[in-house]
Design a binder for these strands. Structure first.
Length: 486
RNA sequence: GGUCGGAUGGCCGAGUGGCUAGGCAGAGGUCUGCAAAACCUUUUACAGCGGUUCGAAUCCGCUUCCGACCUCCA
């Protein structure tokens, strides 16, 4: 296993060598979507980023159990531990059952993930499917003395926890500062401490999504589901826990506290946080109204978009930035990625047309080594892509007859492309050249060649221009004619 | 206000104490019936001011600006 993989760990704020607890197995947990509305592009970036991580771990030969949850209960409007959960609110607005909301947006999420060629996780557990586990966990935390019940709601006692544990381990903040910036407890507030958060919430009479518990009818708090489900499927301590950076300060901080209070161990060894997608420098978010839905991006049907971009162009765009950097969205940047992606794919399409020579002007081993170096350095996909464009130049040069590859290097080049472009980056060719459409194109190209051989340039140009209007670009060369979608 | 992270050429975006990132765009050239593509060459750079160093865009300090989190968000 060529594994000198280093991963940036939010817990230590440094890059660390990746050493699984129980190799070759790797446990990976990622906080999934809350399915009360459509996923926007920023959400997608996180899942594409972890798809890259998952794919590379698989490529290295690890047996990865990838758990990514669906939050379908307990996520409140405003994190004040009061009011409605997001599903009930949306359901009331649309006059449907909350679980209809859950179903609709879960299906939508899966559809979008497929378009982005994001591999499904090994297990995709839901919060509503693990109510019993969550209740058990809350009971244990209470028994361990880190939670208390008030009128059917159970709160986590942050103050008590922080006497023996580092509550702010992920964010390095001072507890006093947190306290200073938290609102005053009102007279009617049930919480003992300002930072306390709900593990279990008493259902109001009108609340539809509710389950029986030792504390009466209620529903789980937002954070407890991830603790309960990650420990159920990956163990009390597992290898990697991931999510968007925005979750670190609250959700993940509380997850760690709950898990510690329950199991007396850190839940995850490596905490990985992906950065935000921005628009004009500001974070894309649901509430700011600057979010794109994937469908709007694909069709170009949005005021900020000049045209539509294909899912693979968008995936490529995302992978051209490192997952821990913000990525700024713009039409210009998408255009550049679109052309770059097509350049990459056009070169790959030429790969099968290359004929091996007796000698080789290029050494693919070096490029391969650099590709691994890039990915081993905290999954540096932009550097990987830069290396792959080196391979693109080699392919084009050989195709132009200005350089040669022997059989061994040609085979290595094909393996390199398969491994890194398709397996690790998860890119796909959006138009297959071998299907019926491709056969049809071959036929048209032969017709045009006949015309050209007869010096009937009027006909050959007509064919070329007509195809261009249909969005298909012909390219003549010594080896023959190829085509690509514009 | 607190914590954290940024500021790289026309745009996006890597990286690093001395060696070309890459993509897109621009310029010139080669090839070509035309077109496109490809290939070659090439212009524009590391926010500002100090300091450390033989040498800093890269380390340190200060300044300015920006963002994220601290209230729901991947």
């Amino acid at each position: 296993m060529k594994s000198k993989l280093v991963i940036y760990n939010t817990l230590t704020r440094t890059k660390e060598n990746f050493t699984p607890i129980n190799p070759p197995f790797v446990g990976l947990y990622v906080c999934g979507p809350t399915v009360y509305s459509d996923v926007h592009l920023g959400n997608c970036r996180t899942f594409v980023s972890f798809d890259l991580i998952y794919r590379y771990l698989l490529h290295l030969g690890y047996k990865v159990r990838y758990v990514r949850n669906i939050t379908d209960a307990g996520h409140l409007e405003g994190d004040q531990d009061e009011g409605d959960d997001k599903f009930s609110k949306k359901a009331r607005l649309e006059q449907v059952e909350p679980m209809e909301i859950v179903q609709r947006y879960t299906l939508g999420f899966h559809h979008i993930m497929q378009l982005f060629n994001v591999l499904p996780p090994s297990i995709e557990p839901t919060a509503t499917g693990h109510i019993a586990e969550q209740i058990e966990m809350v009971k244990t935390i209470m028994n361990n003395g880190y939670a208390y019940e008030v009128n059917g709601t159970v709160y986590f006692d942050v103050e008590k926890y922080s006497k023996s544990h580092n509550y702010t381990v992920l964010t390095n903040r001072q507890l006093e500062d947190l306290l200073a910036n938290t609102r005053d407890l009102g007279g009617q507030d049930e919480k003992h401490g300002r930072l306390d958060f709900a593990l279990w919430i008493k259902a109001k009479p009108e609340h539809i999504m509710r389950w029986p518990s030792p504390w009466g009818w209620g529903f789980p708090g937002w954070h407890i589901e991830c603790s309960a489900m990650s420990s159920k499927y990956l163990g009390d301590t597992f290898d990697i826990h991931g999510g968007g950076m925005d979750l670190a300060a609250t959700h993940h901080t509380n997850e760690i506290a709950q898990s510690q209070a329950c199991h007396h161990v850190q839940p995850a060894r490596y905490w990985v946080h992906t950065n935000m997608l921005t628009v004009n420098g500001a974070r894309m978010s649901k509430s700011a109204g600057n979010g794109f839905l994937p469908q709007e991006l694909f069709t170009g049907n949005h005021p900020l978009l000049e045209r539509g971009y294909s899912p693979m162009t968008v995936r490529f765009f995302m992978l051209q930035a490192h997952y821990r950097s913000t990525l700024d969205f713009s039409n210009e940047a998408l255009d550049a990625s679109d052309k770059g992606y097509k350049r990459l794919m056009n070169a790959i399409a030429l790969l099968d047309k290359l004929t091996p020579a007796a000698t080789s002007d290029f050494d693919i081993t070096n490029i391969r080594e650099r590709c691994y170096q890039a990915m081993n350095d905290d999954f540096n996909s932009p550097v990987l892509i830069a290396e792959l464009f080196e391979a693109v130049r080699i392919i084009n040069t050989v195709y132009d007859g200005k350089g040669s590859l022997d059989q061994q290097n040609l085979d290595m080049l094909k393996t390199l492309i398969r491994d890194f472009v398709f397996d690790v980056l998860g890119l796909t060719e959006e138009v297959a050249q071998t299907d019926d459409f491709g056969k049809l194109m071959d036929f048209i190209i032969r017709l045009r060649l006949d015309a050209k051989n007869n010096k009937d340039y009027a006909t050959s140009d007509k064919i070329r221009l007509q195809l261009q209007e249909l969005g298909i670009q012909l390219k003549d060369s010594k080896e023959g004619t190829t085509w690509s979608k514009v």
